[in-house]
Write a protein that binds this DNA or RNA. Structure first.
Lengths: 344, 344
DNA sequence: TAATTTGGAGGAATCGTATGAACGAAGTAA
DNA sequence: TTACTTCGTTCATACGATTCCTCCAAATTA
């Protein structure tokens, strides 16, 4: 069913039908009714591809994700799609599968860079009106998108210079968590940092360190440990911290999985949370929801980041805003009983 | 940059450039080189929209998911996308957000049905070549896709009659789990079933019941409990089972979250797993990876279901297969120490 | 030498839609 | 009556690619 067919059935020209559909030019009530009747009867749906070709805008947004199976990326995508849908856009999803590749290949970054460029190339062929890049890889200039001058928004954790971005505040949030412990009287605070070289890890640690220094607390070297974000290394780090002769009264684990490791270590050592040791996590992952006592952790504004990314991108496409926008969203600290106060 | 521009730069006709790009018609080596040189220099990329319009195939697949944030749907999408990419297709993702809607609206099904139809309508406008529907809603005939005669594959848990489908075996897997316990000597087996009215719950229970009956074990009413898939109700059900005067020696929890509830209940009661009570789960969720002892559970072939769905769909589109295909994939039982043998 | 085949390239129609320009009929003003 | 708007509609072209058909020149055959 095409415009032409509708037109001949209604006894009008294709132009008129098009005007009726788009309300772009006034049409007499009589003609409109006649056309709309036929459209309803036939269940006609305009061919968006043809429309896009003609109007030179696809109303298609490319969503390029580093790995759809991690970081709860699905929530970000959900947010992105919700706004897209509301504003009459569609998303086409391209998954770089970064993590599985890193496991199996040697030269990460260069391969990765090539993958991104290939994906962008393909998306560009699809005539996307813009791209949202979800991940934390700090890309250098000279990417394909830059060449073809389509707007890009970096979403999640990007701290590079070029382009618009939406991220959440690792540093400020870690600061708040640490400050919360300090305000409760803790002075001996251990930390289990995330994987070295990871952007979130270094940002979170930065916030932690700043909180200590702003409160005049000296960071003790033996209180600083590192894990690979996983349960096992979190537990090992916790065991190390908790068996120190002068053990800390609180441990800041830089993600939830390692925090669960702390719980496990504490139980093994017969220490009670929060009486003997306070614990905080990060990410609000599923794995902590049945912990007892309830873990104080941090909820990242995932869906919200999707919303904002898409809104910024669409405003940019519509020409409403032309300069780069860089947003850092706050996280929400969750209620919990895994931290307690210290009598001073 | 268009075909026409390339053609004039290379001093040939648009037809020739098109032949070079598609290898559809033999072109002299000389001409080919000349054209390819220009294409490389200009970084020309053909406009897929125009191509689709002309060829009347979009190479676009609509992926309609009931809720992208549950059931690890992301892995299915990953599988779908991997095949799509390999075969030169793109996916456009549409999320029905079913769960959040069910929480906030009264008349689930009718609203849901309308949402599906609207989403399909939109996808049809995008001229998708086919649709993969990811979810477990048993749709009635008369959907939009049916009207416009595009192939559909139902993925995940669909047990309806019409159309192709790819699912995993709830019933057979629950049977295997239960049989495993029986083979270890267990005769007093408790069960924590999932949410009533849920398709997976009833299928899993069916497999459980069949295993008992095939081994001549009478199902005791007091050993059958139900939870809402959540930790809390799993724990409550476990407490009920474990405080029976003649308590079961094993508990089949129909998902992992409830199995964690069993672990918690056992600890509270001072029972040891697997010495005093054997436990199995279902889903291989993140939350169990740090349990001790390691939980015997079931890994669903999520990515594989994505692969197969897309392959079936594309074969159907290509006309390779015309009849419906219905596949049920097996699950993998994981190794673990949460089950032990009973001396008979 | 004339007739026929063949390989390579170009012309032009086409896909479904949008839209500026042109047009006809009515209404208004002079 | 004539000229000029105004409103509603149609014509014709363009968007960028594919592909059928035609055409030409060189090669082959009679």
């Amino acid at each position: 069913m095409t415009l032409k067919e509708i037109a001949s059935m209604a006894g009008v020209s294709v132009a008129t039908v098009s005007y009726v559909l788009n309300n772009s030019v006034p049409v007499s009530a009589e003609t409109r009714q006649k056309v709309e009747k036929i459209i309803k009867e036939t269940g006609y749906r305009s061919n968006i591809l043809a429309k896009s070709l003609r109007k030179n805008e696809s109303r298609l947004i490319g969503v390029l994700v580093e790995d759809i199976t991690v970081w709860h990326t699905a929530y970000i995508i959900d947010g992105i799609n919700e706004i897209a849908e509301k504003r009459g856009y569609h998303t086409i999803l391209s998954n770089l599968r970064l993590l599985s590749k890193i496991e199996s290949q040697f030269d990460h970054i260069s391969i990765f860079q090539k993958d991104i460029e290939k994906a962008e190339d393909v998306l560009a062929g699809m005539q996307v009106d813009g791209i949202i890049y979800v991940g934390m890889h700090d890309r250098k200039i000279n990417n394909v998108l830059h060449d073809i001058k389509k707007p890009v928004v970096y979403c999640y954790c990007y701290t590079g210079e070029e382009g618009s971005s939406v991220r959440y505040s690792n540093e400020k949030t870690a600061f708040q968590l640490t400050k919360k412990l300090i305000d409760l009287g803790h002075r001996k605070i251990g930390v289990i940092n995330g994987l070295e070289g990871s952007e979130p890890a270094s940002l979170r640690f930065q916030g932690f360190a700043q909180a200590l220094s702003e409160h005049g607390i000296q960071m003790k070297e033996e209180y600083v440990t590192t894990g690979n974000w996983k349960f096992q290394e979190g537990k090992e780090a916790a065991l190390k911290l908790l068996t120190l002769s002068d053990r800390p009264t609180a441990i800041v684990a830089m993600n939830d999985e390692m925090a669960v490791g702390v719980f496990d270590a504490a139980r093994e050592l017969g220490l009670e949370i929060p009486k003997d040791i306070s614990v905080t996590g990060f990410d609000n992952a599923d794995i902590i929801h049945h912990l007892s006592p309830k873990l104080v952790t941090v909820e990242r504004p995932l869906q919200e980041m999707g919303y904002r990314s898409m809104e910024i991108l669409l405003d940019n496409i519509a020409g409403i805003s032309k300069e780069d926008v860089n947003i850092t969203l706050p996280c929400r600290l969750t209620e919990g009983d895994s931290v307690g106060s210290i009598l001073i």
